[in-house]
Simulated assay, not measured.
Amino acid sequence: MSWLLYISIAIIAIAFAFLVVYLIRTLKSLEKTLTNVASTVESLEKQMDGITKESEELLHKTNRLADDIQTKSESLDTVFTSVRELGDSLQRVNQSVRYVSERVSVKAEEQADNTAQAVQWGHVMIDLWSKWKAKKEAVTSDHHQSKEGS
């Protein structure tokens, strides 16, 4: 039976050796995997640093752009205020012109009869003046003819 003990120990030793060999292979494979993971993580860290720097630059540019837009917007506010004031002024001028036009129309209607009468009197005066001038010319031409005939 002692030979059974030696065979059992030999089988245990061989099994232990196989176990150690497979364990070593597994550990070496795990080492390669962990090395790859480490290099991947290192690469990701570098990429993240680049992305972080670019993000910070983009954020700074965005802030500068927002400040520029704010400044330009404030300067446009004065333009819009001026345009609004100009519009108000034009509206007041339009109201004044409308008021004056209405007043002129009302006065013209009130004075329409007087104007018509003045025009009639003007025609009468022109007719009288024309007749007077014609008589004067007739008298003058008769006077010249009588002097020539004598």
Score class of each variant (00 low, 15 high):
Arg98Glu: 15
Ala118Pro: 02
Gln111Lys: 10
Val21Tyr: 04
Val97Ile: 08
Gln117Leu: 14
Ser146Pro: 00
Arg84Cys: 05
Leu58Asn: 13
Leu86Trp: 07
Ile126Gln: 07
Ala10Val: 03
Lys135Gly: 07
Ala38Cys: 01
Thr78Asn: 11
Ser8His: 11
Ser82Gly: 06
Lys107Met: 10
Val100Arg: 06
Phe16Ala: 12
Leu86Arg: 05
Thr71Arg: 08
Ser146Phe: 03
Leu86Phe: 08
Leu59Gln: 06
Lys46His: 04
Ser29Thr: 09
Gln111Gly: 11
His60Phe: 13
Ser73Trp: 05
Gln111Met: 11
Arg92Tyr: 02
Thr26Phe: 08
Ile11Thr: 14
Lys32Ile: 10
Ile24Gly: 01
Ser96Pro: 08
Glu74Thr: 02
Leu34Pro: 01
Ala66Trp: 02
Phe16Ile: 04
Thr62Met: 06
Thr26Ile: 04
Ile126Glu: 08
Lys135Cys: 11
Lys147Asp: 05
Thr140Tyr: 14
Glu45Ile: 08
Ser73Lys: 09
His143Phe: 10
Thr140Val: 15
Asn36Pro: 01
Arg92Asp: 05
Asn94Tyr: 10
Gln117Glu: 12
Leu30Gln: 15
Lys133Phe: 13
Gln95Cys: 00
Arg92Ser: 05
Thr140Asp: 13
Thr62Glu: 12
Thr115Met: 07
Val97Gln: 11
Gly149His: 00
Asp77Leu: 13
Gly149Thr: 03
Thr115Val: 13
Trp121Tyr: 07
Glu85Pro: 00
Ile14Val: 13
Gln111Leu: 11
Leu128His: 03
Leu34Tyr: 09
Thr115Asp: 06
Ile11Phe: 13
Leu27Gly: 01
Asn114Thr: 15
Thr62Tyr: 07
Gly122Ala: 15
Ser89Gly: 07
Tyr99Ser: 08
Leu59Pro: 00
Lys136Ala: 07
Gln70Lys: 12
Arg64Gly: 03
Asn94Leu: 12
Thr35Gly: 10
Lys61Phe: 05
Ile11Gln: 06
Ile69Gly: 01
Val21Asn: 03
Asn114Glu: 15
Glu74Cys: 00
Ser105Phe: 08
Asp77His: 12
Ile51Asp: 09
Val97Asn: 05
Ala13Asn: 06
Glu57Gly: 02
Thr35Leu: 11
Thr71Val: 14
Val104Arg: 04
Ala108Val: 02
Lys133Tyr: 12
Lys131Asn: 08
Gly50Cys: 09
Lys131Ala: 05
Asn63Ser: 04
Val139Asp: 12
Trp3Ser: 15
Tyr99Ile: 01
Ser75Val: 02
His60Gln: 11
Trp3Tyr: 15
Ser101Arg: 11
Lys147Phe: 04
Phe18Pro: 00
Met125Ser: 15
Ser2His: 13
Leu30Trp: 12
Thr26Ala: 13
Ile7Asp: 02
Ser43Ile: 10
Ala15Asn: 10
Ile24His: 01
Val139Arg: 14
Leu58Lys: 09
Glu57Lys: 06
Arg98His: 14
Leu4His: 13
Ser29Glu: 14
Leu27Ala: 06
Arg92Thr: 01
Val106Thr: 15
